[in-house]
């Protein structure tokens, strides 16, 4: 493995640098800049799903809860509590971890499919709560979220356009990618993989299946929440639309599109799906059919991802 690292590292570095430069190269095109920013934000969210699905091998349908923790953390934090971006980030992460802990402990002893069902129901119920609770803005949501303003002493940086938000978004993307890489090389990543591929063998090798699931679930919470945090500042709006099935469909499709456990897999997946949605749109309902069909076709025909066509 050490011998082949340099080549894949080089590719990785070039791809990321290239991605970083695209909005600046096409800075006049709001469409392209917006596309890049949204791709990165949604990709960050999908990495939470990635570690649960590609590594742990389970399906968590409750990531919307963590997404919501991120967005509503900003919504409540800025409009009601006047918090700084760093503080809203902390708030978002804490709320996400709390939700994850509650769900995680409740589902600690249940089987895989029960875990998926409970997380699914949690998301639908959370939708109902967010839709009806005045405190969270009810169906209207929370409007007028200020743009992200970072201050250090006398200096302040206001990210009031997509282009100005881009460096922050990209930085968070790099951090998430770094976390994923470290996760996969850590004990937790190995144990997640072992529980996925052969639970009996994993157990006899000392892996505590339930605790591993809980830990990975808890790790995924802040990752998706960070995406939500950025999303709120990018849209200047927070609402119950984050609970719509679109997001989980996007995340799952992006994660399986290229193949499992590929570092840039979800990022490229999100980029491709978003590309279709923005530039080759079939209309709202048509896009739903397309995205659903993409997910189904991938799983039926190419369960190992598109790249399996190029492997043996």
């Amino acid at each position: 493995m050490p011998k082949s690292l340099p080549l894949s590292h080089l590719f990785l570095a070039l791809a990321l640098i290239g991605f970083f430069l695209v909005p600046y190269a096409w800075s006049d095109s709001r469409v392209i800049v917006g596309y890049c920013v949204l791709t990165a934000i949604l990709a960050i969210m999908s990495y939470g799903v990635d570690m649960i699905t590609s590594d742990l091998g389970e399906v968590s349908l409750g990531q919307a809860l963590f997404l919501a923790a991120g967005t509503y953390g900003v919504g409540i934090g800025t409009t009601r509590l006047g918090l700084s971006p760093v503080a809203t980030l902390a708030l978002s992460i804490v709320v996400a971890l709390a939700l994850g802990a509650v769900l995680g402990f409740i589902t600690l002893r249940v089987r895989e499919f029960m875990f998926s069902l409970v997380t699914y129901c949690a998301a639908v119920v959370a939708h109902e709560v967010a839709y009806n609770l005045e405190f969270l803005g009810a169906s209207e949501g929370i409007l007028g979220i200020p743009s992200m303003e970072l201050t250090l002493g006398p200096f302040s940086y206001v990210a009031d356009t997509n282009l100005r938000l881009w460096p922050i978004v990209f930085l968070m993307l790099l951090l998430v990618l770094g976390l994923m890489a470290l996760f996969r090389r850590s004990t937790l990543g190995a144990e997640a993989l072992m529980s996925h591929l052969n639970p009996d063998l994993a157990e006899s090798l000392g892996v505590n299946l339930r605790r591993t699931r809980l830990k990975v679930f808890l790790l995924s919470a802040p990752v998706t929440a960070v995406g939500g945090w950025l999303y709120a500042y990018q849209r200047n709006y927070v609402g119950p639309d984050v609970f719509e099935p679109y997001f989980i469909m996007l995340f799952l499709s992006a994660v399986i599109l290229l193949g499992k456990r590929l570092l840039l897999g979800p990022l490229i997946g999100v980029a491709l799906i978003l590309f279709q949605e923005r530039f080759l749109s079939l209309g709202g309902d048509g896009n739903k059919v397309f995205l659903g069909a993409l997910l189904v076709v991938m799983l039926l025909a190419l369960p190992r991802g598109a790249l399996s066509l190029f492997r043996k």
Partner: peptide, 27 residues
């Protein structure tokens, strides 16, 4: 089915070594 069929033989052996040779995430 007493190994991880999706991983290489070497990677299987690495998994068998367990925690002693695998760093924790905090580390």
């Amino acid at each position: 089915n007493s190994f991880f069929t999706e991983l290489t033989v070497l990677r299987n052996a690495e998994m068998a070594l367990g925690r002693a040779y695998c760093p924790s995430l905090p580390a």
